[in-house]
């Protein structure tokens, strides 16, 4: 698969602060690439540098095989951008906003009309086309933001945290829409600090922290990189020191935390010993209300690599 984006050793500083530290990554044609990291990790800066909107001190960005510059109009014509902040004009209606931004890429009026109608359908804004943005709910506003970025049918779309402050239902609608867009052939670069979102829609994920790409791969590949295995959670009715100690001494347990009758057991990689936990509880005649095991998440990956949880910075 050809690379649509190639970022090679990009360094970006804000004074003393190194926002991007030798960032290198590749995005392949047709994939959804997720850039995951806590707030302030450099995700937005990385996108702005890829779009040649921000200066950078070192390194190179190539998009569609061409070095990306502010006047790379041929490349820009094939790119759509959905910013983190809603970027629409308040005095224009939904339809006018989409037409305005689409018109920055598409000259032909008839074609534009068709594309605007498609974008409205795609984002489910048909009933709101004459509404002003101020009259839309948060979710609808986000959908309008997306419609403005994709109406011209770009080959590559950057989405910078498009679901921030969106209710779960609207978030699901947005994510399903993006998957549909991808199925239609659009390459997507998606930044977020919500690990569930990247797990749900991204083919490959890059984890960014302090401007460095600390890990990259598919969700399973990333989880495979760490030493942690499943997390077993037990809700105890009457926790006692003896059973806690016995669980802690099990050979596959790497970490155990107790909090208000709830025990979280972190197992070592490859281990999934729910039966041993159950046997230990039975041996100590300890009653429990629930017990379940969870596979490692991307938060576990981030935690293990950086020592911090993904949302520590929220």
């Amino acid at each position: 698969m050809a690379n649509v984006i190639e970022v090679d050793g990009v360094v970006k500083r804000y004074g003393e602060l190194v926002a991007l530290d030798q960032l290198s990554l590749e995005v392949r044609a047709g994939e959804i690439y997720g850039l995951l990291g806590p707030n302030g990790s450099g995700k937005s800066t990385a996108i702005y540098c890829m779009l040649a909107l921000l200066t950078h001190e070192r390194g190179e960005v190539r998009v569609f095989g061409q070095t990306m510059r502010p006047d790379s109009y041929d490349s820009k014509r094939r790119i759509g951008v959905v910013m983190q902040d809603v970027a629409v004009f308040g005095p224009l209606t939904v339809e006018e906003n989409i037409d305005f931004f689409c018109g920055l890429y598409i000259r032909d009026r008839a074609e534009r009309k068709r594309l605007v109608a498609d974008a409205i359908d795609f984002t489910g804004l048909g009933d709101f086309r004459k509404f002003l943005p101020a009259k839309l709910s948060g979710g609808l506003l986000r959908r309008l933001n997306i419609a403005c970025g994709i109406a011209h049918r770009p080959d590559l779309v950057f989405l910078d945290e498009p679901t921030v402050a969106v209710d779960p239902q609207s978030r699901n609608n947005i994510l399903e829409g993006l998957q549909e867009l991808n199925r239609q052939g659009t390459t997507i670069v998606y930044t977020t600090h919500y690990m569930e979102e990247v797990e749900q829609i991204c083919d490959r994920i890059g984890i960014l922290d302090h401007g460095q790409l600390i890990a990259e791969g598919t969700s399973d590949e990333l989880k495979g990189m760490i030493a942690s295995g499943d997390t077993i959670t037990v809700e105890l009715q009457d926790p006692n020191a003896a059973v806690i100690q016995a669980l802690r001494e099990l050979d596959f347990v790497s970490q155990l935390e107790l909090s208000e009758g709830r025990i979280e057991i972190q197992t070592r990689r490859g281990e999934r010993r729910l039966d041993s936990v159950l046997a230990t509880l039975a041996a100590h005649d300890t009653a429990y209300s629930s017990i379940y095991a969870q596979k490692p998440t991307l938060n576990t990956v981030f935690l293990e690599i950086t020592g911090r949880a993904l949302r520590d910075h929220d």
Partner: peptide, 21 residues
């Protein structure tokens, strides 16, 4: 305000479009 990428998100969107400044 509408044209400058460092003032508004609309400005950012306009600045990344293939337009001669």
């Amino acid at each position: 305000e509408a044209l400058e990428a460092n003032k508004t998100p609309e400005g950012q969107r306009i600045r990344v479009a293939p337009l001669h400044h």
